[in-house]
Structures are given as C-alpha cells and as structure tokens.
C-alpha cells in the first residue's frame, strides 16, 4: 500500500464516512518498505492537485517522515524544485506500508495490512 493510496482511503463503515475523524486513517505498527520506481515528474504534477494535502501531512508525520510544508507546492513550484519532486516521489510512490494496521479515528476499527495489501472487509456487525 502506497502512501499516495492512503490519501484516498477512509473507513469502510458507512456511518463513519460523514465524520471528519475517519480521514485519514491512522497507521499503527507500520512496517515500511521502499520500492525503487523511476521518477515521473509529469505524472506527479498531474496527480498533485488531487491530493488532500492536510491529510498527507498527517500521514507523513505519523509514519515518521519529516514534516511537510503547510501549503502544497503549486505545479510550477513542484516542477522547478527537483529536491521536492524527489521527496514527494519517494514518500507518495516509493514508500510502501507492508505490515501493520490502519485505524479509523471515528469508530476505532483497525484494518489489517499484510504483505502490502490492506483488507477493508468488515465483520458482519459493522456492515
């Protein structure tokens, strides 16, 4: 599971979705791995506007990465700043959460991540 993916995920429990506490999910006991992926500045710039930056900052901090700037870079800023490009590429695309849990801040449910795959199937009482 990529950090980028985490930015689009919330709790699968329907009643949690309207709560601000359900996003982003909070990593717990996370084991991270690093994939080597060739950098693609264009794709990164294109996806940037779709990212919830505030949530990304939270996730980044919770995973132990250095704090991200308060405001997202503009596409122009990103394209001009090679160091920032590399940092975001590394965080969003190359960092994988391999093991651990994703915890909903609303209902407290913990979703398991195993071998890099998060499982959002709910126990029957939560469906």
């Amino acid at each position: 599971m990529k950090v980028l993916t985490l930015n689009f995920l919330t709790c699968a429990v329907k009643t949690c979705k309207s709560s601000a506490d359900s996003f982003p999910l909070h990593p717990k006991d996370a084991e991270l791995a690093h994939d080597d992926i060739e950098i693609n500045p264009e794709l990164l710039a294109n996806v940037l506007p779709r990212i919830d930056w505030t949530a990304l900052r939270t996730t980044s901090t919770e995973l132990g990465f250095p704090e991200l700037p308060a405001q997202p870079p503009t596409v122009e800023e990103l394209e001009a700043d090679e160091a920032l490009l590399k940092e975001l590429h590394s965080l969003l695309l190359e960092t994988q959460m391999m093991e651990g849990k994703l915890v909903c801040g609303c209902c407290g449910h913990e979703y398991a991540v195993r071998e890099g795959i998060a499982n959002f199937l709910l126990p029957s009482h939560l469906v």
Binding site: L4, T10, K17, F23, D36, E38, I117, V127
Partner: peptide
Amino acid sequence: GSRSSKEGITDVLVADGLSLPFR
C-alpha cells in the same frame, strides 16, 4: 531495479463493493 517511467501508478486492496473504503 528501477521500473520504467512509462508505467502508471497502481495499487490494490481488498474491499467489498458495497462497503468501499474510498472517501
């Protein structure tokens, strides 16, 4: 080693279509 930059970015997860975890 490093993968081609021509690829898209993809990820996969397990979820039920009636209880999707996407915001």
